[in-house]
Simulated assay, not measured.
Amino acid sequence: MSTESNIYKLLQNTSDISNLHEIETKNIEDSTYFDYSFNFSGMKFLGSQISNPLFTLNKMTVLFRYDLKKETTRAAILETLNTYNAERPLMNATLANYQGKKVTIAFSSDFICDDKAINERQIVPLINIMAPSPIDFVNYLEKKKIAIVRK
């Protein structure tokens, strides 16, 4: 599978995507796990595809680290993520790491689609929706009175 997969070939031929490479492909029982990464809009995206006879799950993720102006409780961050996610059904933002004033958020989107059926009309809009998510989340945090150090 790996670099021969349809999703990999589509990403390879998508403008503005760079540094596309396979991280790992492994087969476990009747499932194939394919992990890859690429750069788009100055950010590193991680992707995975899990294929088995029942379904193929595709996932794209971009991690972003925020520096808070002051320490905020984990509960406040999680509550903010919950309300953020409720307003954005295509995306899922999760707390990847939290240490003092440093917060890492994973923005991801999952979809079930056989690799052969994936096309550019699915992938390009998904990446374009995900790319502005880190700045959208900054604006959302500020609306919730959680201040971020802007660099």
Rank of each mutant, 00 (worst) to 15 (best):
N52P: 08
Y33E: 08
D110S: 11
T32V: 14
D16G: 05
Y36M: 08
S37T: 15
V62R: 00
M130G: 02
K144Y: 01
I28M: 08
S18H: 10
E29P: 00
E24I: 03
S18V: 09
T56L: 00
P132H: 06
S41Q: 13
S15F: 07
N13F: 04
E120F: 04
L95V: 05
P89K: 13
Q49K: 14
P134H: 08
F107R: 05
Y8L: 02
L68G: 06
N19A: 12
Q12D: 13
T61F: 00
Y8W: 10
Y36P: 01
E79I: 02
M43C: 00
V138M: 05
A76S: 15
A147C: 06
H21N: 14
N139M: 09
A76Q: 15
G42N: 09
T32K: 07
L78R: 14
Y33G: 02
F64M: 07
I28D: 09
R88Q: 12
F34V: 06
S31P: 01
V103W: 03
S2C: 10
S109C: 13
L78D: 12
I28G: 02
F55H: 13
K143T: 15
T94A: 11
I135R: 10
N13S: 10
E142N: 15
T104D: 01
L11C: 09
N58Q: 12
F107K: 00
I123G: 03
K69D: 11
L141W: 04
T94W: 02
I50V: 15
I118A: 03
T83V: 11
A96K: 14
K101S: 10
L63Y: 14
G100D: 10
D115K: 04
L90D: 14
P134N: 04
Y66E: 02
T3L: 04
N82E: 15
F111K: 03
Y98S: 05
T25I: 09
Y8A: 01
K116Y: 10
K101A: 07
L20I: 05
I23L: 14
S41L: 01
I148D: 01
